[in-house]
Computed example of a mutant assay.
Amino acid sequence: MSLGWSFGDGQKVTRLWNASYAQDGSGVTATNLGWNGKVAAGSSVSFGFTGSWSGSNGRPTAFKLGGRSCTVA
């Protein structure tokens, strides 16, 4: 299972826990998630990260879970 999202320019993940990550430009993909399996509908999972930025520090607006787009709550 993987979770992907995009940051604005100048933002970078510096540490992530409960998963491994790769960042290519503004795109970030988290893999080997601590809940690496099935996530039941309506349930939630947790992981966190710290980062650095220059300029503005907006939150991601789109996510992909296992390659499929999902909404931001």
Score class of each variant (00 low, 15 high):
Met1Phe: 06
Met1Lys: 10
Ser2Asp: 14
Leu3His: 07
Leu3Ser: 06
Gly4Phe: 00
Gly4His: 06
Trp5Ala: 03
Ser6Cys: 10
Ser6Ala: 15
Ser6Gln: 11
Phe7Pro: 03
Phe7Tyr: 12
Gly10Trp: 01
Gly10Thr: 02
Gly10Phe: 07
Gln11Cys: 10
Gln11Gly: 01
Gln11Ala: 08
Lys12Pro: 04
Thr14Arg: 05
Thr14Val: 08
Thr14Ser: 12
Thr14Ala: 01
Arg15Lys: 14
Leu16Thr: 01
Leu16His: 04
Trp17Cys: 05
Trp17Val: 14
Trp17Thr: 09
Asn18Gln: 14
Asn18Arg: 11
Ala19Asn: 06
Tyr21Pro: 01
Tyr21Thr: 02
Ala22Phe: 07
Ala22Cys: 08
Ala22Ser: 15
Gln23Cys: 05
Gln23Ser: 02
Gly25Val: 01
Gly25Arg: 00
Gly25Asp: 02
Ser26Lys: 15
Gly27Gln: 15
Val28Leu: 07
Val28Cys: 05
Val28Met: 02
Val28Arg: 05
Val28Asp: 01
Thr29Gly: 00
Thr29Asn: 03
Ala30Phe: 13
Asn32Ser: 12
Leu33Ser: 04
Leu33Gly: 02
Gly34Lys: 10
Gly34Gln: 10
Gly34Asp: 12
Gly37Asp: 08
Gly37Asn: 05
Gly37Ile: 03
Lys38Tyr: 15
Val39Ser: 06
Ala40Asp: 13
Ala41Tyr: 06
Ala41Leu: 07
Gly42Met: 00
Gly42Asp: 01
Ser43Gly: 09
Ser43Met: 01
Ser43Glu: 06
Val45Glu: 11
Ser46Arg: 12
Ser46Trp: 11
Ser46Ala: 12
Ser46Asn: 13
Phe47Pro: 03
Phe47Ala: 10
Gly48Lys: 04
Gly48Thr: 05
Phe49Trp: 15
Thr50Ser: 13
Thr50Val: 13
Thr50Leu: 12
Thr50Glu: 14
Trp53Arg: 09
Trp53Thr: 12
Ser54Asn: 15
Ser54Glu: 11
Ser54Leu: 10
Ser56Val: 10
Ser56Gln: 11
Asn57Trp: 08
Asn57Asp: 07
Gly58Cys: 02
Gly58Thr: 09
Gly58Asp: 10
Gly58Met: 02
Thr61Asp: 07
Phe63Gln: 06
Phe63Asn: 06
Phe63Asp: 07
Lys64Leu: 13
Lys64His: 10
Gly66His: 04
Gly67Met: 00
Gly67Asp: 04
Gly67His: 01
Gly67Cys: 05
Arg68Leu: 11
Arg68Asp: 14
Ser69Lys: 10
Cys70Gln: 11
Cys70Lys: 09
Thr71Asn: 12
Thr71Gln: 10
Val72His: 08
